[in-house]
């Protein structure tokens, strides 16, 4: 199984939101997960989900403070820290299908994503999107 980078980004963002991370940070780490996942070398979803929410916020602060201090990327650890710095600075990267995401980490992301969805009810189904449910006209 391989994935598009956008679906890695979006799925990981939702998963992190489902885990309770604020949307803005979840979006950054969704993008980081996509960067890490590009190609066949890394399961970026597993790499990001390995950190809990507090650790991700701390990671953002450390990387952003380091960058603000004018330090080079070498002051940051290889892997997620340097990737986060590159993401925040908008650096381009070689983009390719994500081929190293394990079935387990994808499933974990889907389970967490599900926590962002509102359970179906009859009232929601009939009113929430407005349309009827049959369109034979």
């Amino acid at each position: 199984m391989n994935y598009s980078l956008n679906e890695v980004h979006m799925t990981l963002r939702k998963a992190l939101c489902g885990r309770g991370l604020a949307f803005g940070a979840a979006d950054d780490f969704g993008a980081v997960g996509a960067r890490l996942s590009s190609g066949a070398a890394c399961d970026g979803i597993a790499a990001v989900l390995a950190f809990d929410n507090s650790a991700l916020i701390a990671l953002l602060h450390r990387v952003e403070t380091t960058m603000a201090g004018g330090s080079s990327h070498t002051a940051l650890a290889a892997g997620i820290e340097q990737t986060l710095a590159a993401q925040l600075q908008g650096h381009p990267f070689p983009r390719d299908r994500a081929c190293a995401i394990s079935a387990e980490s994808w499933q974990q992301a889907l389970v967490l994503s599900h926590l962002t969805y509102v359970p179906e009810t009859e009232a929601s189904r009939l009113g929430g999107a407005g349309a009827g449910t049959n369109d034979n006209d």
Binding site: L115, Y117, P119, E120, S124, R125, G128
Partner: peptide, 23 residues
């Protein structure tokens, strides 16, 4: 604004009359 678990359909709810505003 929310996303329903039903095929992830985007929907709009009433905060004071419906569940789901926590999402």
């Amino acid at each position: 604004w929310y996303v329903s678990e039903a095929k992830l359909e985007p929907r709009l709810g009433d905060r004071y009359a419906e569940d789901g505003a926590d999402k």
